[in-house]
Design a protein around this nucleic acid. Structure first.
Length: 476
DNA sequence: TCACTCTTAAA
DNA sequence: TTAAGAGTG
């Protein structure tokens, strides 16, 4: 019997899935997910693992509908795959990989281990539109700035035509017992994550739903609404793209079709394509700097004089959304409640941590990694380096977001602040942006007592901004 | 290939 | 305000 294994990774879908497509020619097919505590999941945070758990549950359902069955196991990927291959008599293993340094190293390790057992591993690149290793500027060097990267090297893409899932061969007749999903241990024993069900439903079917809704209703307003944190103006596709519940090639083709069929949406489509471009650019940077999550792209920043936070009080106030700066607190509380934060407030809360609190950007990176359902090794690292000013981008270091000014511009009616910082909801909008400058009477009328019902600012915005600029000057 | 100018940018 | 990268000769 000619049997193959599909080793599922960050490709948890059936449509346009290269591993299933390549493996479909075999007579028997065993879909297998291996939780390797020392592999990819070792870096993923709790929110991301929550998504993974439920995405696997959804995939198991999809495979059952397709007459197949998802199998689960735990352990070293190479060892586990070799064991299953032997047990079911598989002659080949098919999978996909992201073209990033960590994933390619893992694939190489497993391929070697399998080769030693006489097994072949077929791994198809997936999840990206560009090859982050080969994109080069005219001088033959990798790009260090987004705009030329996207305009000159990557905007004009023609990914291969997406393919529907072929008919899946049946599973082997008596495969070894699969572990149960809970036995993978992806979920934290502290059930903080149950609240995430109120916002998200992981899995391919729901991702395709979100995508269809976004293309028919969201994308027309995307260019104008995506910057407003109070509005549901973004695609919310990031976690699905991270886990491959959506095919990036299929998404790109859908955008081309939308562009032809909905010319009035062209601004939004162009803006959304550009955001996908940032995702590609992040992987381009990660290919240049495998330690992107910890090592500043601009090496001068290794000597940056960060503030002492001996008792961790500043970091803790930031994490809990108790800084006394309403837009910062709103963002951090949205993150805590939903596992997601609007892009605008990611920049604002990031700038506040790094510039005003002057705490290491790596601390912020680690917290977002643990709490974001859409955490991604490339995007998260790039974002933090960008906001710090130590990344590969032309943004000057002296750009310090003013969280009050940001709130006035992007949450003018204070709707987002009122939603996530309800203790300020009775203040008029202009005071919601900076309650410390409201009169005693206005505060009393709204039931706000600074320092009691809502914190006073833990840091002076003007003073800390000056100190940050002085600290940046020392880098020369 | 170099030295130069010009354009542009997650404020 | 700085710097990447395209364009030019």
């Amino acid at each position: 019997m000619n049997t193959a294994i599909v080793w599922l990774r960050r490709d948890l879908r059936l449509h346009d899935q290269p591993a299933f497509r390549c493996a479909a020619a075999h007579e028997r097919l065993l879909p297998l997910y291996v939780h390797d505590p020392d592999g990819y999941a070792a870096h993923a945070g709790e929110a991301s693992r929550w998504w993974l758990h439920h995405s696997l549950a959804a995939l198991a359902g999809r495979l059952a509908e397709a007459g197949s069955r998802l199998h689960l196991d735990v352990g070293d990927s190479g060892t586990v795959l070799a064991g299953w291959a032997q047990a079911v008599g598989a002659v080949a293993i098919y999978t996909t990989y992201r073209a990033d340094p960590g994933d390619e190293a893992e694939i190489a390790r497993v391929r070697q281990h399998l080769a030693d057992q006489g097994l072949s591993l077929h791994a198809e690149a997936d999840g990206l539109l560009t090859n982050p290793w080969t994109v080069r500027n005219r001088g033959g060097r990798p790009y260090r700035a987004f705009t030329p990267f996207w305009r000159n090297a990557a905007a004009d893409l023609s990914p291969p035509t997406p393919q529907e899932c072929p008919t899946l061969p049946p599973a082997p007749e008596s495969p070894p017992q699969s572990l149960s999903l809970p036995a993978l241990g992806l979920l934290s024993p502290i059930p903080w994550h149950t609240k995430l069900h109120g916002t998200w439903q992981p899995g391919e079917t729901e991702a395709l739903h979100r995508l269809a809704g976004f293309l028919s209703e969201g994308i027309g307003c995307y260019a104008t609404q995506r910057d407003l944190p109070a509005v549901a103006g973004t695609s919310r596709l990031s976690p699905s793209l991270h886990f491959g519940e959506l095919s990036i090639r299929d998404l790109w083709h859908r955008l081309s079709r939308a562009s032809a069929a909905q010319p009035e949406d062209e601004d939004g489509i162009a803006a959304f394509r550009s955001e996908l471009g940032w995702r590609e650019f992040a992987y381009h940077l990660l290919a240049q700097e495998p330690e992107l999550h910890s090592r500043p792209f601009d090496r001068r920043f290794e000597a940056f004089p960060w503030r002492d936070d001996p008792h961790g009080a500043l970091l803790q106030a930031w994490r809990e959304g108790k800084t006394g700066i309403p837009l910062v607190d709103a963002g951090m509380r949205e993150l805590w409640a939903t596992g997601w934060m609007h892009n605008r407030t990611r920049m604002v809360t990031g700038s506040f941590l790094v510039k005003n609190l002057r705490l290491p950007w790596q601390w912020g990176e680690a917290f977002f990694r643990d709490t974001l359902v859409d955490w991604d090794p490339a995007s998260n690292s790039m974002g933090w380096q960008w906001v710090t000013g130590c990344g590969a981008d032309a943004a000057p270091y002296f750009r310090v977001f003013n969280p009050v000014r940001q709130a006035e511009r992007f949450d003018p009616d204070g709707v987002y602040i009122a939603r996530w910082v309800p203790e300020l909801a009775n203040l008029p909008p202009k005071h919601r942006h900076q309650p410390w400058s409201a009169s005693a009477q206005a505060l009393a009328q709204a039931g706000v007592t600074l320092g009691v019902t809502y914190p006073r600012p833990i840091i002076d915005l003007q003073q800390s901004r000056k100190e940050a600029l002085a600290a940046f000057q020392t880098l020369g």
